[in-house]
Amino acid sequence: MKVFFLRIYDIYQFSLRFWKEAFLPPYEYKEVFNQFFEVGIKSLSIISLTGFITGLVFTKQSRSSLAEFGATSWLPSLMAIALLRALAPLVTALIIAGKVGSNIGAEIGSMRVTEQIEAMEVSSTNPFKFLVVSRVLATTCIVPVLAIYMGFIGLLGAFVNVYNNEQTSFVSFFQEAFMKITFLDLFTLVLKSAIYGYTIGMAGCFNGYYADQGTVGVGRAANTAVVVSMFLIFIEEMLIVTLINTYR
């Protein structure tokens, strides 16, 4: 129990240090943009594929239920609500947790066990700023962008299914889809994606930064980064939805 609370305290200190270092110069612009590329551009293909299939399959599965009530015309708005309120941020976060979170944990972990982080410290540079701040900033900023992108790609998947069945035009599909979407939905999408991104970055960096016991520790850091961030993402999803629904 004592170890658990000490761990919580370490995480708190780690987060506090992130906020402190993120706003203090010098800034590692180059590394931040490098990480934007690593997290964003390199995840586009998997996000595109997953988003399109999610939209297409979800529409296909929902069609039969709605058809029983003659309500297939609700499909565009149903899909928009499902994708933008829940599926896009959640699925994007889970994919990024698996792809990027594990990568961050393993990369920083192996730098720790091969003394590369200590090498940065003794060469009078700040490894926390270079490794942690840049990665957490990148995941926090890029996950919302990817979630919005996945939302639209998912709607494209939904459109393909709707077009094949009802020959609805592109414009009327999207008009229909966005009729029920409010500013609060888009705000929530961005906010919770940013929180998920922050969680993924912090979980990866924290576990990597404090990795020990050689290669075993690196594997453990990568694994723990994914498990912890996925667990926290679901908890956060529940809390955010509960909170937002009180305003809706």
Binding site: P26, T114, E115, Q116, A119, S124
Partner: peptide, 27 residues
């Protein structure tokens, strides 16, 4: 203070040039 590590501790993801540039441009 210069510190030469037992395992060299070169930054894996960077070329030799970038390894040498890293401390210099930051200091």
């Amino acid at each position: 203070i210069g510190f030469s590590f037992q395992g060299s501790a070169l930054y894996d993801g960077m070329t030799v040039r970038a390894n040498l540039e890293f401390p210099l441009v930051r200091n």
